[in-house]
């Protein structure tokens, strides 16, 4: 069964068509990568799926329910977690409190004015931190964490409402190479254990080919290839887009000559 079905997604900004007629499916438990060169429309695509951007045309269905036109916060409540390209956390709170906030919101206790926030869902929050091996840092202020730890914290926050689908926008951006591999291994393992489906965008090809079950390649707003790692590696069009199909070099040579 498909968790996510995207059909004919299109978005232009002024005269620029950022995403044109993109369709794909995401199966339950699948780890799906969305790749493409800079400006290919990955982030635009992503923001339409999670509700931050309204497409001009097309539909996004989560387990049969249409997501277009629904506010991001409602999409979260429907079981879609997300992490950010640049981490977004509550910097004036501790690591544990950040996870507790996600749980408080999930249990709809945000308008409670009598309980002590720090005493709610402590154990559940601790369990989530253990999942990402952050339990040692639970009491630290978020503002003093290293970037890689913030990324892991975001993962714990995203998993708090027990989502069916996880959207990860460049999960390893800004991290050291060794950390990248570790974070994605951790993610892959959690995803497999909890049966979450993941859609992620990524620049680092090592990460993509090592973990993605399937890969979508976007170029200039259009989907140009789709398949397993091996299929994508062999795809002539993808090679041209990533390595340059000669047109660029031909032009350069002509100019130099």
């Amino acid at each position: 069964m498909n968790v996510l079905e995207v059909r004919g997604l299109t978005k232009s900004f002024g005269g620029l068509v950022a995403v044109e007629d993109v369709s794909f499916d995401l199966a339950a438990g699948e780890f799906l990568a969305l790749i493409g060169p800079n400006g290919a429309g990955k982030t635009t695509c992503f923001n339409m799926v999670n509700g931050y951007l309204r497409p001009d045309r097309g539909s996004v269905e989560l387990e049969g329910r249409e997501l277009i036109g629904i506010k991001p916060r409602r999409i979260v409540r429907m079981g879609v977690g997300r992490t950010f390209q640049i981490t977004r956390t509550f910097l004036s709170m501790t690591v544990l409190e950040n996870v507790q906030m996600a749980l408080i919101s999930h249990h709809r206790r945000m308008y409670d004015i009598f309980s002590r926030a720090t005493r709610l869902y402590r154990d559940e929050a601790m369990a989530l931190l253990e999942l990402v091996s952050m339990q040692e840092q639970a009491g630290r202020a978020c503002s003093e964490l290293a970037y890689g730890d913030l990324k892991r914290l975001e993962l714990a926050i995203a998993l708090a409402p027990d989502p069916a689908l996880l959207l990860m926008d460049e999960p390893t951006a800004g991290m050291a190479p060794s950390e990248r591999v570790a974070l994605m291994e951790l993610t892959a393992q959690i995803v497999a254990e909890r049966g979450v489906s993941v859609l992620f965008t990524e620049h680092d090809m090592d990460v993509v080919f090592a973990h993605a079950h399937r890969i979508l390649v976007l170029n200039r707003g259009a989907l140009i290839a789709e398949g397993t790692g091996d299929e994508i590696r062999e795809n002539a069009l993808v090679q041209e887009v990533y390595l340059g199909g000669g047109t660029v070099f031909a032009a350069a040579e002509a100019r130099d000559a």
Binding site: P72, R73, R74, V76, R77, R82, F84, R88, T89, F90, L91, S92, M93, E97, M101, A102, I104, S105, H106, R109, M110, Y111, D112, I113, F114, S115, R116, A117, T118, L120, I157, A160, P161
Partner: peptide, 28 residues
Amino acid sequence: RVAHSPFGYGLRGIRDSDVRAEAIGMDV
């Protein structure tokens, strides 16, 4: 008392990052 409650924490959360607040399902 409210400052230490979920409601007060929510307000601080929005101040820190409204994007994150929205992403955990809050009506900012």
